[in-house]
Simulated assay, not measured.
Amino acid sequence: MAEFKVPKSHPRYWSLYYRHKIEEALEKGILAKAGTIAHGRGEAFDYLIGEKTIEPAERAMRTAVAKLLLAEHPVVSVNGNVAALVPKETIELAKSLGAKLEINLFYRTEERVKAIEKALREFDPDVEILGINPTKRIPNLESERGKVDEEGIWKADVIVVPLEDGDRTEALVAMGKFVITVDLNPLSRSARMADITIVDNIVRAYPKMIEIAEELKGKPKEELEAIVKGYDNAKTLSDVLIHMRNRLDALSKEGIWRRREI
C-alpha cells in the first residue's frame, strides 16, 4: 500500500486520510469491496450535516452510553469498515463500557475474520474477540451476518451495530434486543429500525462516546435510567433531517459558488 503523503494543510486532509484507510483495509482483506461504496455514501451524508457532530447526535450518544452502562450483557459489533476506521477506538469504547467485542460480517470469509482479528490485536494483543467461531444463528436471517457467538450477540441485551445492514438490525429488534446504531444516513432502514440512532461519522462518534462513558461512569442508576427514559429516537431523526434542510436552505441563500470575474 502506498504511503499516505497528503500534507495536513490540504483542506480535505482528514477525508482523504480515511479514504486511504479504507483502501488500505481493502488491500489487507479487512474490507469487502461493497464497504468502499458504503463509505462513499456515508461521506455524502456527512457533507449534508456539515462534517461535524450535531446536537441530535450528541443527544443520541449520551443516551446510548447510559443504556450500555445499564446493560447486563452489552456487545459492540465489529465489521470491516469499523475495523478499517476505528480499530483502537472500538477496543477503548468496549472497555469503557464493560462490553464484549464481536466480529460480524455480511460478506464473511475466514480470511476476513482473521484479518479483522489481526487489525484489532495490533492495538491490544490480549483483547477478547468473539465471533471467530460462531455457534448460533439469528432467527430469520439467512445471510452470513446471521452467524453469531453464543456468549456475544446471542446473549446480549444491548448491542452497538455501527455501519449496519438493515436486515440484521430488524432481526435483532425482533429478537428483543436493544439496538444502537451509528449511521450517517438517517433514512436507512438501520437508522429507522434501531432503538437509538447516532447520525454521525464513526470517527467522531466513538471518541466522543468514550468521553461520555468516562463522565457517566459511577453515576447513580436512577440518573442513567432518566437519561434513557427521556430519549425519543423518532424526534432525533426528525431533528437531523430538519438540520439538513435548514443547512441546505441557508447554503442556497448565501450561495456556494465562488464568484469571480470572467
Rank of each mutant, 00 (worst) to 15 (best):
A2K: 11
E3N: 08
K5C: 01
P11I: 03
Y13K: 02
Y17Q: 01
Y18S: 02
Y18C: 04
E23P: 01
G29C: 03
L31K: 02
K33G: 00
D46K: 00
L48W: 06
R62A: 13
K67M: 06
L69K: 10
E72L: 10
E72H: 15
V78Q: 08
V82K: 06
L85S: 13
E89F: 02
E92V: 14
L93Q: 01
S96P: 07
K100S: 07
Y107L: 00
V113N: 01
A115V: 00
E128R: 12
I129M: 03
L130G: 03
T135N: 05
K136W: 09
N140D: 15
L141M: 15
R145Q: 12
E150H: 04
L163W: 00
L163N: 07
D167H: 05
R168G: 04
T169V: 15
L172G: 12
V173G: 11
A174S: 08
F178E: 12
F178I: 04
V179G: 06
I180L: 07
P186H: 11
L187N: 10
R192L: 12
I198W: 05
N201R: 09
N201G: 01
I202T: 05
Y206M: 11
I210S: 13
I210R: 06
E211V: 02
E222A: 08
E223G: 05
L224D: 06
L224Y: 03
E225A: 10
A226T: 03
G230V: 10
Y231F: 15
V240D: 03
I256S: 09
W257F: 02
R260H: 13
